[in-house]
Write a protein that binds this DNA or RNA. Structure first.
Length: 549
DNA sequence: TGCAAGTTGTAGAT
DNA sequence: ATCTACAACTTGCA
């Protein structure tokens, strides 16, 4: 049996079967032309390696891919092929071997992913393959939201974004998985793949195959099992807590960054970031719930608003150049942060959880072992590294978060680092998180700190947030001598934050932005950029409208 | 041009 | 628990 053609579905940040527009498109194209549908996922050596991606996220990805492979097998007898290669390198070969007529995938909007997709499309040009792309990661087709702006520019203010959403109405409802119905999808004949060098990648590799040292299961990683079923299960579980009251009354600033056992937030971000959970499905279930309950006034702080932050920041990230760094970024203030050699020891202490501030070090330990930190915990970490204490460039912190966070997301990571470092969105630089006061507010007894930093376990609660204040004999009794068992404070927060507020004042007075050429002062308005943005290659006629009730 | 608001500050007083 | 001073930013709207 020989292959006369095929439809290739390329899974990326859409690791699910439900409400997957690109996948349904693949299925209908395959059914229409009676061709086999071949689903693939790539483990790209450039990204899926121990240097670029922490083990906790890598494990989540592998689990999500395994789970997807199982689902596709059970639902329609299809076999997801996991290929270890750089997509631009391998695609021409795949297209030839599998006689691919159509290549289908979901849009991605971050610069490196856009560049990769462009390279793939360039490399298969001339091979007689049609490339079909679908929007699906965001709630709305971004072009539709942009259509409703005055100047085609995404707003930088949440309140303005809410106006856009108001005019747009609710996003489209989630759609059902289209596979598994009659006629069954034609499976790709095995003979075609025999002796194929791609054959050896039919099963999902484990961590050690990918060069990770500790390939064994670690109990600390059990917080986030990857996969679509798990994501949906967790969503339903959260939405049904106390008959829906918890979700309806949810107010982000009231949830605790120190709740490490009985968490108060949804913990769904990893599932949303990798597409195990569809944002439209979550949105639709939330709307249902909000109709039955009186919800809080504040749209930004309630659960629905959390999805809107994601939407808002992605709309901005996709239309704004260099969103993930200062240079060339028109909305990011130019601030003379410590970088390179100057930043090195400070960055190192922060990243290795050795700042001498238990709250900060505990949060960093949580990040590294679990790949997740509560939003307010991220605030503490980010403020401390940048404008609060260490004056290190937010881009350095960005990279550390990118490495360790399971829910790493280009737009959210960029926007939040700019926010916390007062580089964009937020300007009240004199409001500084104290690593002691903020910790006392949420972790009065020091339980969170002791959980992540066992060396401090015997220290009296009185000194848990400030071990350097404990008398020498108390430190010795607790087996935790500052400077020996636990690091000295890297800075005096009181002094450092005052100095840094003054530095921020100077930076603000200079009024320079990342896109300004050196020394050039901006008079008024935003720097203009005419570069094509991530959404500009898509005709807006595809935008759909569904008025909210 | 003036004024209000900005998802989630702190320290100290009441 | 709720207030006020701290020192004072930007954006959006009237």
């Amino acid at each position: 049996m020989s292959l006369s053609g095929s439809v290739l579905h390329w899974f990326r940040r859409d690791l699910r079967t439900g409400d997957n527009r690109a996948l349904n498109r693949s299925i209908s194209l395959a059914e229409k032309s009676n061709l086999p549908l071949i689903p693939v996922f790539f483990l790209d050596p450039e990204y899926h390696n121990p240097t670029a991606c922490g083990p906790v996220r890598m494990r989540f990805v592998l689990e999500a891919v395994s789970s997807l492979q199982q689902s596709l097998h059970d639902k329609c007898g299809s076999h997801l092929r996991v290929i270890c290669a750089r997509p631009p390198d391998i695609f021409p070969e795949l297209v030839r071997r599998w006689k691919v007529n159509t290549l289908v995938f979901e849009y991605e909007y971050a610069p490196s992913e856009r560049a990769r997709d462009e390279a793939v499309m360039a490399n298969v040009q001339g091979l007689d393959v049609e490339v079909v792309r679908e929007h699906g990661f965001m709630l709305y087709n971004p072009n539709y939201l942009l259509q409703n702006t005055k100047d085609g520019k995404a707003p930088t203010k949440m309140s303005s974004f809410f106006t856009l959403v108001d005019e747009a109405g609710d996003p489209e409802e989630p759609i059902e998985f289209a596979g598994g119905r009659e006629p069954e999808l034609a499976p790709c004949p095995d003979e075609v793949l025999k002796n194929d060098k791609i054959d050896r990648y039919l099963s999902v590799p484990n961590l050690s195959d990918l060069g990770y040292e500790n390939g064994k299961r670690d109990k600390r990683w059990e917080h986030f099992p990857g996969g679509e079923q798990e994501g949906i299960k967790r969503m339903e579980e959260f939405l049904s807590r106390e008959g829906g009251k918890v979700a309806a009354r949810f107010s982000k600033p009231d949830t605790s960054p120190a709740a490490f056992r009985k968490r108060e937030t949804t913990l769904l971000s990893p599932y949303l970031a990798l597409g195990c959970l569809s944002s439209r499905m979550f949105h639709s279930r939330l709307r249902e719930l909000e109709e039955n309950y009186k919800v809080a006034e504040m749209p930004q702080t309630r659960l629905w608003g959390q999805l809107m932050w994601r939407e808002h920041f992605w709309l901005l990230a996709g239309t704004s150049p260099e969103f993930h760094r200062m240079d060339g970024n028109p909305i990011c203030r130019r601030i003379d942060w410590h970088t390179g050699k100057e930043a090195e020891p400070l960055l190192k202490a922060w990243a290795e959880a050795k700042t001498g501030y238990p709250w900060i070090d505990a949060l960093m330990t949580q990040l590294k072992t679990e790949g997740f930190v509560h939003h307010l915990g991220r605030h503490s970490l980010a403020c401390f590294l940048t404008r609060g204490d260490l004056w290190v460039s937010w881009e350095e912190g960005y990279k550390v978060f990118e490495h360790y966070l399971i829910d790493y997301d280009y737009a959210m990571n960029s926007a939040n680092w700019m926010w916390l470092s007062c580089s964009a969105f937020f300007a009240m630089y004199y409001r500084v998180y104290s690593p002691v006061a903020f910790a006392k507010k949420w972790d009065k007894e020091g339980k969170f700190i002791k959980h992540y930093l066992p060396i401090l376990r015997k220290l009296p609660t009185k000194y848990i947030h400030e071990p350097w204040k404990a008398p020498k004999d108390v430190q010795e009794m607790a087996g935790c001598v500052v400077g020996k068992d636990y690091p000295e404070r890297i800075v005096d927060h009181g002094k450092a934050s005052k100095e840094n507020i003054a530095r921020m004042k100077e930076s603000y007075a200079r009024n320079e932005y990342g896109a300004d050429k050196g020394g050039h002062k901006r008079k008024n308005g935003k720097a203009k950029s005419s570069e094509p943005h991530a959404y500009s290659n898509e005709p807006s006629s595809k935008a759909k409208r569904q008025k909210r009730k």
